[in-house]
Amino acid sequence: MNAGVPLSAQLINLFAAVILLLAFAMLAQRRVMPLINLFGLQGLVLAGSTLVVAVTTHQAHLYWSAGLTLLLKAMLLPWILHRLVRKLYVKWDVESLVNVPATMLIGIVLVIVAFNVAQPISLLSHTISRGTLGIALATVMLAFLMMITRTKAIPQVVGFLAMENGLFLAATSATYGMPMVVELGIALDVLVGVIILGVFFFQIRDQFDSLDISHMEHLKDG
């Protein structure tokens, strides 16, 4: 059945599956610090998968983006988030709007949806790793789900970043990566975004004495 599939494709599939697994682990995680660590790990695996694609296809810019991913997503961003958490004294449990098992079940449904939606698209692609497109889409959806179900700000930011991971995976798997300029731009955007959000966190906390974003509901007029 799987005979004839080259080792690189197998590795990419494995990495993609691990990324999906990590997305679920993040969805299930109740603590903030492990959540950030999981995100870092996801970045690491993503870098690994990009590297494999780079080695297989001999595309120089993919080496760059693998390195960039490693640096930015596996090291810099987790480090910034760690600092933020420590500075803000927010080592609380992550509160979730929906309980964890229910979130998981919704997650499974999303995975099925994503796999089916991605299937016709992946048939158009001719890359060795096109099968992972479904996984990439699922990762995006799960990250989105995480942003929806979490009440605190930091998990939401992690969700946002994880979504970007999913997009990146989609880009490498479907088209062997975006042009370098676009990639750099996105990386910069993400970095700047996190820094701005960090500043916002301090502002929010000063304002409400909490990072619970449900307080923002009171910001309406009247």
Binding site: M1, N2, A17, G131, G134, I135
Partner: peptide, 10 residues
């Protein structure tokens, strides 16, 4: 699911 997605169709 991963089996169905990656390994059967790939």
């Amino acid at each position: 699911l991963v089996r169905l997605l990656l390994e059967v169709r790939a």
